[in-house]
Amino acid sequence: MQGTEAKDRSAPDNLDDYLGSSVLAGTSKIFVRKGWDSVESLKSMTRKDVKALGLTKQQRKAFEMRNFLGKIELSRYADTLEASGKTLSSLRASSSFVLICKYGMEKDDALRFLEHREENRQSKVEKLMYEECIPGCIF
């Protein structure tokens, strides 16, 4: 597949698999009841959407991790990273060395995980720049 990213071979195709067997186990009914009935719909959820479900803080953090990994097609690492007890933000502050050695990520996957972190950081900087921009300024 030249020029495109390979699909995550272990990407879950149903809600229960996507939500995992740990912190979010058994919560698929909550998502379905609120209209989030497919893996693709879960990937489009915002923090506000997740908070509206009434999940615990621990469940919201686990969902944030799984959702991030699903969006960048690295779902195969969700169980391992969730079991680490680390938050997504602390893992995103890690080095590729830590992700590879401690969590068993393949090198390309660790680099993609960290590359996405940089893109997110850039978009936050751009947003701040826009907010500071004087009215009429072309951004």
Rank of each mutant, 00 (worst) to 15 (best):
K43P: 08
E64S: 15
E40Q: 10
E132K: 13
K57R: 12
E106V: 14
P12K: 00
Q2K: 06
Y18D: 01
V23M: 06
K29I: 11
T56K: 03
I30D: 04
D17M: 01
K61V: 12
S10P: 01
R60K: 12
S95G: 12
L15T: 00
S123Y: 13
D8P: 00
S41T: 09
M45P: 09
S123P: 09
R9L: 02
G85H: 04
D16C: 04
L19T: 00
Y103V: 06
T56G: 10
E64Q: 13
Y130L: 14
T87E: 10
E82S: 07
S22V: 01
T80N: 10
N120H: 13
K34H: 08
R33K: 14
M65Q: 06
E115Q: 14
S28I: 01
D109W: 06
K124V: 14
K124F: 14
L81V: 09
F97G: 11
K7N: 03
R60H: 08
G104A: 05
M105V: 12
K86T: 10
M129I: 15
A78G: 08
G54K: 02
G3E: 02
I138H: 04
Q59D: 02
V23C: 01
E106S: 11
K43G: 08
V23H: 03
S96F: 08
M45E: 09
Q122Y: 12
D37E: 10
K43H: 12
V39T: 05
A25L: 05
R121M: 12
L15I: 00
E64C: 12
I138T: 15
M105P: 10
V125C: 10
K34P: 03
L69D: 02
L15A: 01
G54S: 07
F63S: 05
A52H: 08
K86W: 07
D37Y: 06
E131M: 15
D16M: 04
L111H: 13
D13L: 00
E132H: 12
G54Y: 05
S95T: 15
L19D: 02
D17R: 02
S84M: 06
S38N: 00
E132S: 14
T27G: 02
L24F: 00
K71L: 13
E115T: 15
S75I: 06
Q2M: 02
S38I: 04
D108V: 15
K127G: 11
